[in-house]
């Protein structure tokens, strides 16, 4: 495999994982603009574990997911008291706090960045990405999947139907944070260098964009969104510096034509219709 191809595939795998980190809270009706904070927490935690204690990078990455998930669980208590635009602002603030904290932590290099000794290649990262996709697919095939949608559709009715609105929202936020931490750790171990300056709110917005443009109604939307966001700029390389202009125009066009995102339940139903007889067991 050429270095270029491997680099693109690694980014594709990491972006797919990141997309699911954003997907979980979005499905629960939460606009999380602090994902970069969880990514950074996972990246630095995993790097620190392997640099300082010689923890193998795969183990360190899993520990980083748990670490980011724990942070998510703890901050979800104050953050999820807010709704809508206020939740977006509160998560944005959380991301800023994480970034500022790392800048002041000299034990991980502060503003100078942090080199990461242990390397993981595409094989490991791709396997983790497949595992995340499979795990999210399984999770959304359970009652959790319909319950979390119910909660974001109508909190009051969901509550009266016996669903634990707060518990489900916390779970979605926490699992999203854990997945973000995993993505951060894998990035750190592949690119061997991390710096706090990368984990800005713009980073969070990009991830949220993958998901919104891919579509939030099915679990395939985030995958498609991540793939398009990773691959399209590469395909457009021929047109040099104009490629991001073309890319932005394509995003605008997609938003105009498919405001629900590229992949919708309706689309999936139409694709499946050929396989299934109409009006089963009516």
């Amino acid at each position: 495999m050429s270095g270029y191809l491997e680099g693109v595939l690694v980014l594709l795998a990491i972006n797919a994982i990141l997309a699911y980190a954003a997907f979980l809270p979005i499905v629960a009706g939460q606009l999380n603009l602090g994902i970069a904070g969880f990514v950074a927490a996972g990246a630095y935690f995993s790097a620190y574990l392997s640099n300082e204690f010689g923890v193998p990078p795969t183990v360190a990455a899993l520990a980083a997911a748990v670490f980011a998930g724990l942070i998510g669980l703890i901050v979800s208590f104050p953050l999820l008291r807010t709704r809508g635009i206020y939740l977006a602002l509160a998560t944005f603030a959380f991301g800023q706090v994480v970034q500022a904290t790392i800048l002041n932590l000299n034990v991980v290099g502060g503003a100078a960045g942090y080199p990461v000794r242990e390397f993981v290649g595409f094989g490991v990262i791709g396997a983790f990405a497949l595992a995340v996709v499979a795990a999210v697919y399984l999770l959304f095939s359970t009652r959790f999947g319909i319950s979390i949608t119910a909660v974001s559709d109508d909190e009051t009715a969901a509550d009266l139907m016996g669903l634990s609105v707060r518990g489900l929202q916390t779970a979605a936020f926490t699992i999203g944070a854990a997945i973000a931490g995993l993505a951060g750790a894998l990035y750190a171990h592949h690119f061997s260098y991390i710096e706090a300056q990368n984990y800005t709110v713009l980073f969070s917005i990009y991830i949220v964009l993958y998901v919104l443009l891919g579509g939030t109604q099915t679990i395939f939307g985030p995958l498609l969104g991540a793939a398009v966001f990773t691959l399209l700029p590469e395909f457009l390389r021929g047109s040099a510096e104009w490629r991001y202009v073309i890319f932005a125009c394509l995003i605008l066009a997609l938003m105009a034509w498919r405001p629900q995102g590229a992949v919708t339940v309706d689309l999936v139903r139409r694709l499946l219709r050929n396989r299934r007889p109409e009006g089963e067991r009516a």
Binding site: S141, T142, R143, M161, G162, G167
Partner: peptide, 24 residues
């Protein structure tokens, strides 16, 4: 069907109910 399935686990434990693979 997903709408009506919301209330179906009312009498099982909240956590185990969430993990029932209703759509797998």
């Amino acid at each position: 069907i997903e709408n009506v399935m919301i209330t179906q686990a009312t009498h099982s434990g909240a956590f185990t109910a969430m993990l029932q693979p209703v759509n797998l």
